[in-house]
Design a protein around this nucleic acid. Sequence first.
DNA 1: AAGTGGTCTAGACCACCGG
DNA 2: CGGTGGTCTAGACCACTTC
Lengths: 253, 253
Amino acid sequence: MGTTQLEPVPEPKYWHLKTVLSEALDSEFSVGEILPNERDLAARFGVARATLRQALEQLELEGRLQRRRGVGTTVAPPRMGVSVGTDPHSWPGGPEDAWQPVDCTTAVPPAAVADALGTAREESVHTVRRSRVSHGRPVAAELLYVPPSSVPDLTGIDAPSGAARARAVLRELQRLELERQDSAVELGSARADDAKELDRLPGAPVLVVTTRFVAGGRTAALSVATYRADTCRLTFGDFGGVQVHHGPQARAS
Amino acid sequence: MGTTQLEPVPEPKYWHLKTVLSEALDSEFSVGEILPNERDLAARFGVARATLRQALEQLELEGRLQRRRGVGTTVAPPRMGVSVGTDPHSWPGGPEDAWQPVDCTTAVPPAAVADALGTAREESVHTVRRSRVSHGRPVAAELLYVPPSSVPDLTGIDAPSGAARARAVLRELQRLELERQDSAVELGSARADDAKELDRLPGAPVLVVTTRFVAGGRTAALSVATYRADTCRLTFGDFGGVQVHHGPQARAS
DNA sequence: AAGTGGTCTAGACCACCGG
DNA sequence: CGGTGGTCTAGACCACTTC
């Protein structure tokens, strides 16, 4: 049966709308420019506001738009490349580290973390909270779990808690010889506390990078880092300047 | 998941609903089990269907649920780890390659790809389409751009197009000495063709992995791979068996 | 044909930001 | 305060799968 493609399956309105808006962004708007508000845009395209919002949500997910309550919708700059796996042989806290320690507590980690670390489920570990800023914007929040056995010489005298103690833990970590670091990336949604730190609403899409630091044949530390998915492109290796995705789509066929 | 009314709470209903559902999934459901339909669930929680759907969308984004039109909503298995950066010194198409060539065309790539490859914008390149299957499910679709200069000995006689030509291009690629491969990961939404291949609806969230293969000091090939974000956890290095994210949240504080 | 999730509407009110 | 995006409702119809 050769050809009977007569029936044009109408694509969803919000999908078509997204395409139209995307082309308009390429041709008629510049970075930082504010769009008309949602009610005006919906009226202009003859759709309900909810439908218009569905299109805007997609564009925000793709990093094309930035929306802020009480302010408006603006055209987002291209995603910034954030180096994640540059040097596979450097501990967190070393030189060239883009992270800034915030504080440090000692507490029982989630069961999955304890399993990955190989510690008992009820055993406390040092939990270092760090944040990462790039181009003046917060881009990631991290929890670094360090079992006491990895930093045996850490004295309680150093600092009971806070950023000073965080730095002490990181400093002690440098004394181990790092063999390898393995990472995994997956999609998640921001918890309330991470959202606050990343200047987003709870539930915002994030890229969760889990990194296992291996020293002496065992997992000496575990990092769970939460990156803003709308503004970040995670780079592994030297990916300087290359920008491929999200251009006008000219598809090979 | 008993009889349930949502207690009045300052946080958004859909957010609270998501938490309640998440806990129910942990305690009262097993992988593959089907949930009640959306209309019933909404009635049970005393919310509008749209609000219930907002909660389900989040859970699907986090890989907890799988929804299929005409079928229902099921509890998703844990995300599968998909190896992305195992061996930084292997060409696509080599042994241990999880990809399956689909076809190959020669066409002018998008401008951004041409720039990354260092070819002229109007120059045609070999475009190999591949798909990746894991545990019997499609997990990724890829476009591999190979400039003719990287495969000079490719004869037109080999095969004009199709999977045979794709294999020929990959085979020729092996002859170059691969120096390095650099990757970047970002969030995107599935185009119509990718969505079809991944068995998802257009616009579904995907992880876009862009990889640059460097040989002889220049970019010899460029891969743009689109992974299902709901079912995949991308692993760089040996991350076997480690499963950290998405557990009951016990937060250090 | 029946039942599922996906799309869409036309309203309403709320939370937040700025002047 | 007025204007913005964020949440929520109660419907309707559509596309798809299964029986």
